[in-house]
Amino acid sequence: MTGRSDLPHQTVKVEKPSGRAIVFVIDDDVSMRRSLSNLFQSVNLDVAAFGSAQEMLQGKLPEVASCLVLDVRLPGLSGLELQTELAKLNLHIPIIFITGHGDIPMSVKAMKGGAVDFLTKPFRDQELLDAVVAATERDRKRREVEKTVANLQSLYDTLSSREQAVMKLVAAGLMNKQVAAELELAEITVKIYRGRVMKKMGARTLADLIRMAEALGICSNHPE
């Protein structure tokens, strides 16, 4: 990330994240919530601030890159509990914890839970901003991957079951002959299926197809 300057009043440098991103702030303290929102807005980040975890969970999370900045000690659902709750909901939003008086067990727990960063007050705002940018970037990437997989999945879904089976075996590195034997088909038939699969999945090379299968997680650990 950006290096620190010893100059006071150093202008916060933000490596602008590519594309839109939104920062969720959860803090029961109005001042804190307000100042954090102010800070993120001043660097052109979109902010959504909440007083409690429940408030946030009630809303619908947007389909854009985002991260969550929250206090460990929240009234009601605590920060750590929210982390667990989000994991249960399969929401992989990156979390940056801030705490007034952090302690080691809590940090370990947070990091284990997949927290991006753990900042102890008082922290330099640059640290926070850096963490936020990193977290959103990570989220963006995760989202891109998720999006690709989703595309592949939809292409994959257009395949017939025979085609899928062929694709699975091909991706596992089997020769046409082997595939035919496996599926008890004529080799020529396997070739035709393979051609259709390549076409439907938009794979130009076999390598492409294998990567796609990996992304889709349909690779069987078939011995080479």
């Binding site: 916060v12 102010n38 807005q41």
Partner: peptide, 30 residues
Amino acid sequence: HEINQPLAAIVTNGEACLGWLGRETPDLSA
């Protein structure tokens, strides 16, 4: 904590203020 909260907010707001002022066209109202 009670004292830290407002102090942290002050610092953050100060940073934000600098951020608003440091823009190409400073956002004075912010």
